[in-house]
């Protein structure tokens, strides 16, 4: 596996040079970042050129990097009010802002080459535009159709050139993009049956957010040497 990966990495470096930037620290898997404007050109080459032959797009995945590397647990003393007190509720960031942090949203593509038996991961950040937008790869890999619809539904990332960009997983008439990190885990509305009106009604949620286990990031020296090695290499 590793040898095949290295062969592929060498070919990618030779073919694409600066366009693709290799990312370290990914468990021996090949990960490259690219500019979203190069996406279509690179993807077409990866699919069609015999050296790469990635005939299958296995997955498309949206990522919201809003809280990346930010831990919730900063309190040192214990009290009896539970963990929630230690967790500062993140302020809701309105998506009406004109611009996003350029590294907030990313789309990750997992490619598989059956003829060469290798996998490859590509990541394209969507840049500052609101709503975030990237080019669709449906014409290159038809399997992208629903995967991109899912990313659009859950993250609100638009795919330019997609033939049928509708919501797919959420309810009819759903508002918001639930997998964004600033979307509350319990949602915004709750559904109940109103006997008087004789229909199902939507109301604002009544549940309080509660943290059972806070997110902590520990400096673990068992991994530090490992990480250093990766960043050097």
């Amino acid at each position: 596996m590793t040898r095949r990966n290295e062969t592929l990495a060498a070919r990618i470096d030779a073919r694409f040079g600066e366009q693709l930037e290799r990312i370290a620290s990914t468990c021996g898997e090949l990960t490259y970042e690219l500019d979203k404007d190069d996406l279509i050109q690179v993807a077409t080459a990866l699919r069609n050129e015999a050296d790469f032959g990635f005939e299958m797009l296995v997955d498309v995945c949206g990522v919201d990097y809003l809280h990346y590397g930010i831990d919730e647990w900063t309190t040192n003393s214990a009290t009896e009010t539970g963990f929630s007190r230690g967790v500062e509720q993140q302020p809701v960031i309105l998506d009406e802002a004109d611009e996003f942090d350029p590294r907030r949203f990313a789309v990750v593509y997992h490619l598989l080459s059956i003829q060469n038996n290798v996998r490859l991961r590509l990541r394209a950040y969507t840049g500052t535009s609101n709503p975030p937008i990237v080019r669709s790869v449906v014409d290159i890999w038809n399997s992208a159709n629903w995967f991109e619809r899912e990313v659009f539904d859950l993250y609100g990332i638009l795919f330019d050139g997609h033939p049928d960009l509708r919501r797919i997983l959420t309810d009819y008439g759903f508002i918001g993009h639930p997998f964004r990190k600033d979307f509350p885990i319990m949602g915004n509305v709750e559904v109940s049956y109103d006997a008087e009106e004789g229909r199902v009604v939507y109301k604002p949620v009544t549940i309080e957010p509660r943290t059972l286990v806070p997110k902590v990031i520990r400096d673990d020296n068992r991994y530090s040497a490992d990480l250093k090695e990766h960043s050097d290499g």
């Binding site: 620290s25 468990c27 898997e29 990960t31 997992h110 996998r119 520990r218």
Partner: peptide, 25 residues
């Protein structure tokens, strides 16, 4: 911190789990 995609031959096809970790629990 890191990311990994693990795929297994599930009875229905390829079942993959892609995890991004930022070093947290």
């Amino acid at each position: 911190e890191g990311e990994s995609y693990a795929a297994i031959e599930h009875p229905k096809g390829e079942f993959g789990v892609y995890i991004i970790s930022d070093g947290a629990n």
